[in-house]
Amino acid sequence: MIFELPNLPYASDALEPMISKKTLEFHHDKHHAAYVTNLNNLVKGSKFEEADLETIIKYADGGIFNNGAQVWNHTFYFEQFGKDKIHMLKNGAFSDAVYRDFGSLDIFKDKFSNASKTLFGSGWTWLVKKPDGTLDIVQTSNAANPMRDGLKPILTCDVWEHAYYIDYQNKRADYIENFWKIIDWAVIAKRY
């Protein structure tokens, strides 16, 4: 199949000042776009030519996996933001699970932030739903995606330096702190 770069679900300046227009333009128009282009080139003539992204994430290796997973990861990342749509986490199945598995939303956020700060090199931090329904936090390197291990992604933070270097340079912790200010919890709860 031919993969397409999804549009950002908001204007490129919509997340200012937490994530700058310049960062979002490079991140979406260059990085995300390059993964899509590379993937389309790589799957041509391969056994993944007709595969969807989830199949690629579960079974591919090398360049096809790296680019396929990065296409999926970035779409998932961009979809969860919305500065003007920020809702407090509403009571419901997802908030119940957060309180059950972490104790409170703040404790969860602390643990997720810490996992994001301590991931060494390029990668992603994830809130995932395990097959038994409980929530967990996992770190993955480079393009890796928890679906490969049978986990369902609920929330993610991109800690590749390109996600924050223009705005925060070496201060990854500041990026993570501001990351929480643009999370659309309605999107997150729905994923759960």
Partner: peptide, 12 residues
Amino acid sequence: VWEHAYYLKYQN
């Protein structure tokens, strides 16, 4: 080739 080595000037 960490991105921090070149991102401010060369980005992607």
